[in-house]
Design a protein around this nucleic acid. Structure first.
Lengths: 338, 338
DNA sequence: TGACGAAGTTTGAACGATCAAATTATGCTG
DNA sequence: CAGCATAATTTGATCGTTCAAACTTCGTCA
């Protein structure tokens, strides 16, 4: 295999200078038509491909986004993140960006990793997943002026005005609201909500959608809480359902929905309408309705926030500038549970 | 934020030359003890971090591995790949390597992408997932001398001797063999196999494990086939189980196992022992036993094949050298189905 | 027609690291 | 203690690209 051609080789072949070749690549519009074509022909003929490292060294841009791959949780979810990363990779590639993974077990370790990658010039920006209250990572990133966007809201602040940093997320409340309306419409007025213990931003947000839809319709229903586990949900629903034969259950997750479904089936009510959240393969397999997040849209939103609507360079946020956000409406997938 | 320190700054601070600093970083053992310590102290004090792009440009190594993220299949699997990529990222990081994602919808597109990344010096090696018979990608990679390892066997060749290229995989036959033995032991002599249509390497391999275990034990059982779908499996098992009340079913996947379990439950045999494959969250949620792949070990194997047992540089394979492989034994996860 | 400004193109330098070769320091032997 | 081999360190060049500034070409208008 011969040595890869450089910009110099292309220049010689096209009878122009290095810089002109570089211009054809990076700002074609400032090169005169005939010259541009000549250079482009030479590029194709020689099979020239720019050397990323050299470009990065000179421009001090890596055109790469860092994403942490969360450790396998063992839970039922994961697909959402999976689809998100995939969509992010695709969309980024369309904008001339790459996605680099890194692994970390703790926030502190994650900060270390990001530091290495940023200082080493390996990444220009970071996409955080799974933000929590008072996230140490976000403050660190802000101090260091590292551009970033989170998949998930900075729950800490009250909803008043500008968020602490740019984020993209799925509108959980809208999802449960749609699910609740659907059940009210199809099943009956008494719809329960099966949620996580209070205090998680995501969980509370989804609970809100249910409670708003219920009071809008002028109905009421019980609200149950448990950890995110099929078994626990099954036990809980099994014991309360006997006394309170509700018309349907909106759940904060597919795990809980599956538990509820199994409990209902065991109690002789296999047809009890249950709606989960995340539309995981497990819910699909069991024919349980679910609210589907659209991580592809979140990914597009993340890139818009990082690079502007059309740019192909990561933007440095101005100091006083308000952080923007993107909120994606999820989609209710209706299935005839069996 | 002040300009990031370079090797030059460290050298000045430590009173040595650039090259010595470089040596401390890359081959510490050739630097005299006191000098080394002085340099290391300066590195820490200045917070020096090597600039990856400069290093890559000079060494012509990116220390990065490319991995294609498969598009979301919509099926029940995916977790295995997920865990694999995660483990690969972690292990790679321990060896000073990074993992870069790329997306592609077709093999041709994938080859294009890899070409860009390799020629651009962005990746040193590729990890392929989901190899098929007569894979166009593998031949292309071999022609171009791009180091690569596949997660999955090159099924094309007969088992004789050296494989066409290095690979790491899970021993499917061993998994179904263990599952079959377990059912023979616990449930009874008549164990069925529910598999995919013949012709897929993975599927046939798993079927082999069952049939070997059955003939070893001197027993027989029916073998059924269907596409990988919960619904189809349910129908199929529902219709054949009535006539042939087997003692248990070993399945080629969790989807099929779930279908079989649902069918058995519907026929009034909720306790029929069923074993799936992949140990997906869905199987876990339903309390179905499953053979768990150990993608973490596969990831370790992949890196060993790429970089040798301890190295931290991707090795170029010699022309005549036999391709090596790693076969990981999966683990049977027994659950009391309910 | 000549001068001027803008557009197009070229030239030299720089990004930050490592390689290869040259130089200096160290330890050992007779 | 000289002589020599080897270890330790330094120096100059280089990887391939883009930036900044200098230079050339071209069209336009006085």
């Amino acid at each position: 295999m011969a040595k890869a051609p450089t910009v110099e080789d292309v220049a010689r072949a096209a009878g122009v200078s290095r810089q002109t070749v570089s211009n054809v690549l990076n700002s074609p519009d400032i090169v005169r038509g005939p010259t541009r074509e000549r250079v482009q022909r030479a590029i194709v003929e020689l099979g020239y491909r720019p050397h990323a490292a050299a470009r990065r060294l000179r421009t001090r841009r890596s055109s790469t986004i860092g994403v942490r791959l969360d450790p396998y949780a063992g839970g039922i979810s994961g697909v959402v993140l999976d689809r998100f990363v995939h969509a992010l990779t695709e969309r980024a590639s369309e904008r001339g960006m790459r996605v680099l993974l890194y692994a970390a077990r703790t926030p502190a370790e994650e900060i270390d990793r990001i530091g290495d990658l940023v200082d080493g010039g390996e990444i220009d920006a970071v996409v955080l997943t799974g933000t929590s209250h008072e996230d140490t990572r976000t403050t660190w990133l802000q101090e260091r002026d590292v551009p970033f966007v989170s998949f998930g809201r900075p729950w800490r602040s009250d909803d008043d005005g500008a968020p602490a940093h740019p984020w993209a997320d799925v509108d959980g409340a809208a999802g449960t609201r749609a699910a609740t309306k659907h059940l009210l419409d199809q099943a009956g007025p008494r719809i329960a909500f099966l949620g996580w213990p209070e205090g998680s931003g995501t969980g509370d947000d989804r609970a809100r959608g249910w409670s708003e839809a219920m009071s809008d319709a002028g109905h009421t229903g019980p609200r149950w809480h448990t950890e995110d586990s099929v078994g626990l949900a099954r036990e809980l629903v099994g014991s309360v359902l006997a006394d309170d034969p509700v018309d349907g259950v909106v759940c904060v997750s597919d795990s809980l929905a599956i538990g509820a479904h199994l409990a209902a089936t065991a109690l002789g009510r296999p047809g009890l309408p249950v709606v989960g959240f995340d539309n995981t393969p497990a819910a699909e397999a069991l024919g349980i309705s679910s609210v589907e997040q659209l991580p592809e849209q979140v990914a597009a939103g993340v890139l818009d926030l990082l690079m502007g609507p059309t740019g192909n360079v990561v933007l440095q946020r101005e100091a006083g500038q308000d952080a923007a956000y993107v909120l994606v409406e999820p989609r209710l997938v209706v299935r005839g549970a069996e």
